[in-house]
Simulated assay, not measured.
Amino acid sequence: MNWKIGLADNWRRLHTKGTVVLSGGLALVTAFGPAIIDAWNSMPPDLKALLPQGIQRYAALGAFLLILVVRYLAVRRKGGGDGAA
């Protein structure tokens, strides 16, 4: 097989796509992981007790599922002036 890697179609407007924005936001959350852990450790125990057990696992699973949903959905403007359907 002959494979050729190149830029995505319409790559100059890729930053406006929902999946790219969502993935970038989740990457920022990951980048600030140590600060989030410090904030979690500084929370009072009674406030931590209000949150469900295993919230980190559910948050990661939710983020993954959200990326899948956004990836396979298309959002289009109705009656937009840019010629999009």
Rank of each mutant, 00 (worst) to 15 (best):
A35N: 07
S42M: 12
M43P: 06
I36H: 06
G33V: 03
Q56E: 15
V29M: 05
P44V: 09
G54R: 03
F32R: 08
Q56L: 15
A39K: 02
S42T: 11
P34Y: 03
V29W: 03
A49Y: 09
P52G: 02
A35R: 07
K48R: 15
G33T: 05
A31G: 10
A35P: 03
V29Q: 02
M43G: 09
M43F: 12
A31T: 07
Y58V: 01
Q53A: 04
L50A: 15
S42Y: 07
A49N: 14
Q56Y: 11
Y58P: 00
Y58E: 03
L50R: 15
F32C: 10
Q56H: 14
T30N: 07
S42N: 15
T30K: 07
K48G: 04
L50K: 15
P45K: 08
G33R: 00
T30S: 11
N41M: 14
L51P: 01
L50G: 11
T30E: 09
K48T: 05
S42I: 08
S42D: 15
P52Q: 00
A31K: 05
G33P: 01
Y58K: 04
Q53V: 02
A59R: 03
L28N: 06
T30A: 12
W40Y: 12
D38G: 12
I55N: 02
P45M: 09
R57S: 07
A59F: 01
G33I: 04
D38C: 11
L50H: 12
M43K: 12
A59M: 05
I37T: 14
I36K: 04
A35F: 07
L51Y: 04
I37M: 14
P34C: 06
R57A: 07
G54C: 02
I37N: 10
K48H: 10
D46Y: 12
G33A: 08
G33S: 08
W40V: 10
P52L: 01
N41S: 15
L28K: 08
V29H: 03
N41E: 13
Q53M: 02
G54L: 02
D38Q: 14
I36C: 06
I36S: 07
A49M: 10
A49Q: 14
D38P: 08
I37H: 08
P44T: 10
A49C: 10
A35T: 07
P52R: 00
D38E: 14
L50E: 14
P44D: 13
R57V: 05
Q53Y: 01
I55K: 00
D46S: 15
A35E: 09
A59G: 05
D46C: 11
V29K: 01
R57P: 01
D46L: 13
L28W: 08
G33M: 05
I55E: 02
W40F: 14
L50Y: 12
L28D: 06
L50F: 13
G33Y: 03
T30P: 01
A39R: 03
V29E: 02
Y58T: 02
Q56A: 15
D38K: 11
N41C: 11
A39E: 05
A39T: 05
Y58I: 00
N41W: 09
L47N: 11
